[in-house]
Structures are given as structure tokens and as C-alpha cells.
Simulated assay, not measured.
Amino acid sequence: MHSAIWTAVSLLLIVEGLGPMLLPKVWKRGLLTLISSPEKLLRRFGGAFVVVGIVIFYMMHR
């Protein structure tokens, strides 16, 4: 179980690091847009990401 968690964390770090590594200007612009977004919109996006993550997790472990 621990190796699965570390695998997930490592994949998350790889994916999250690709943006600033490959397209730093676009990534910074995206962050500025994100920071200026209303909290309600950020909550919706966060909720959508959680739901998609749960669905993917469920499909992988059926």
C-alpha cells in the first residue's frame, strides 16, 4: 500500500512540474488568472477535480 501512495505522489509531482519546466510564461499567466478568479469558481473546479479523481480511482480498482 505504501508503494502505491509514493507512486501516486511521484506521478503528481512529475505532472505538476511539467508546466513550469516546459512553459514557464504560460504557467505564470495561468496562475495569475487563477489567483484573480472568484472563490466560488475555484471551489467548483476543486470539486470537479475531486470527483474526476474519485471516478478514475474507482474505475482502476474495480
Rank of each mutant, 00 (worst) to 15 (best):
39 E>A: 15
50 V>P: 01
19 G>A: 03
8 A>K: 10
7 T>V: 07
17 G>K: 01
43 R>L: 12
50 V>R: 07
15 V>Q: 04
32 L>E: 08
47 G>V: 03
49 F>D: 14
38 P>C: 04
35 I>A: 05
28 K>E: 04
32 L>A: 05
47 G>R: 01
29 R>K: 09
28 K>Y: 05
19 G>P: 01
20 P>K: 02
56 I>L: 14
6 W>M: 07
19 G>R: 02
15 V>H: 01
34 L>P: 01
51 V>T: 15
29 R>H: 06
53 G>I: 06
26 V>M: 06
41 L>I: 12
61 H>E: 13
60 M>C: 09
6 W>V: 08
57 F>A: 15
45 F>I: 08
37 S>A: 08
14 I>V: 10
6 W>N: 09
24 P>Y: 00
61 H>A: 14
2 H>C: 14
58 Y>L: 14
52 V>F: 07
46 G>K: 07
49 F>K: 11
27 W>C: 00
28 K>R: 09
9 V>C: 05
19 G>W: 00
39 E>M: 15
9 V>M: 06
62 R>I: 13
16 E>H: 08
58 Y>V: 12
42 L>F: 13
3 S>G: 07
7 T>S: 11
31 L>V: 04
5 I>L: 11
25 K>Y: 04
29 R>D: 06
27 W>H: 01
55 V>Q: 11
19 G>N: 02
36 S>Y: 03
38 P>E: 04
50 V>E: 06
61 H>R: 12
14 I>R: 03
14 I>S: 04
10 S>Q: 13
17 G>E: 02
50 V>Q: 09
29 R>G: 05
28 K>T: 02
60 M>I: 11
41 L>W: 05
54 I>M: 12
7 T>I: 14
11 L>F: 07
26 V>G: 01
19 G>M: 01
25 K>D: 03
47 G>I: 04
21 M>I: 05
46 G>L: 03
9 V>E: 04
7 T>A: 13
21 M>F: 10
12 L>A: 15
21 M>G: 03
38 P>I: 03
30 G>M: 02
16 E>Y: 09
56 I>N: 13
59 M>A: 13
48 A>E: 14
34 L>Q: 05
43 R>A: 15
60 M>F: 15
50 V>L: 07
6 W>Q: 10
48 A>V: 13
60 M>T: 15
38 P>Y: 02
55 V>D: 07
46 G>R: 08
48 A>H: 09
2 H>V: 10
3 S>Q: 07
59 M>W: 12
6 W>Y: 15
8 A>S: 09
32 L>C: 10
27 W>V: 00
19 G>E: 00
62 R>S: 11
57 F>G: 03
26 V>I: 08
10 S>P: 01
47 G>W: 07
48 A>M: 15
51 V>N: 11
14 I>F: 10
8 A>I: 06
36 S>K: 08
20 P>D: 01
43 R>D: 15
31 L>M: 07
3 S>D: 11
49 F>W: 10
24 P>W: 00
55 V>I: 09
51 V>M: 12
